[in-house]
């Protein structure tokens, strides 16, 4: 049997009440598996920010976590509007979140930069009008955890 574990959650767009639930459950899963806390902390940041982006910007999608003995892969997929300028979107402080979202305390433009900082590898494929797929990887044996 090839050794891997997978969880997948549907994240609804604009559902701010449920926001954070998927990332919480992924964190619980990692703890059950005995993944070291330095790694689950980085994973928490990635899953939470990716989940929030699904909620705020994409109209909803899926959040998936795949664990193998070597690595943890977190993938957020949506069929939303896509990101026209990836380079710009990665910049700290850049955000297109509407005012109504900012009033709730979201949309500081730190999500993607924080995801980048906490992953060992990050790939974003996005096409305007088609959607976005974000794939972040954390390696388990990449020396002691915190890369901040």
């Amino acid at each position: 049997m090839d050794s891997h574990y997978e969880v997948e959650f549907t994240v609804r767009g604009d559902d701010f009440l449920a926001a954070g639930e998927a990332s919480n459950q992924i964190k619980e899963t990692l703890i059950m598996l005995g993944v070291p806390s330095a790694i689950s902390r980085r994973a928490s940041v990635i899953t939470y920010e990716a989940e929030m982006n699904l909620v705020i910007h994409s109209g909803g999608g899926t959040l998936r976590a795949v664990i193998t003995p070597e690595k943890l892969t977190i993938q957020a997929t949506d069929r939303g509007p896509g990101i026209p300028d990836l380079h710009l979107a990665m910049r700290e402080g850049f955000s297109t979140a509407p005012d109504r979202v900012r009033e709730m305390g979201f949309g500081a433009g730190m999500g993607l930069p924080n995801i980048k900082r906490n992953s060992d590898n990050l790939e974003i494929e996005s096409e305007v009008g088609k959607g976005t797929t974000l794939t972040a990887t954390i390696l388990f044996h990449e020396g002691p955890g915190d890369r901040r």
């Binding site: 050794s3 574990y5 703890i31 059950m32 598996l33 005995g34 664990i67």
Partner: peptide
């Protein structure tokens, strides 16, 4: 010190199996 809940098993491999059973 941290006091995490004990994981389901000692190795990641075993823990994954148990988590599937769970």
């Amino acid at each position: 010190q941290p006091r995490p809940r004990p994981s389901l098993a000692d190795t990641l491999d075993e823990a994954m199996k148990k988590l599937k059973t769970m």
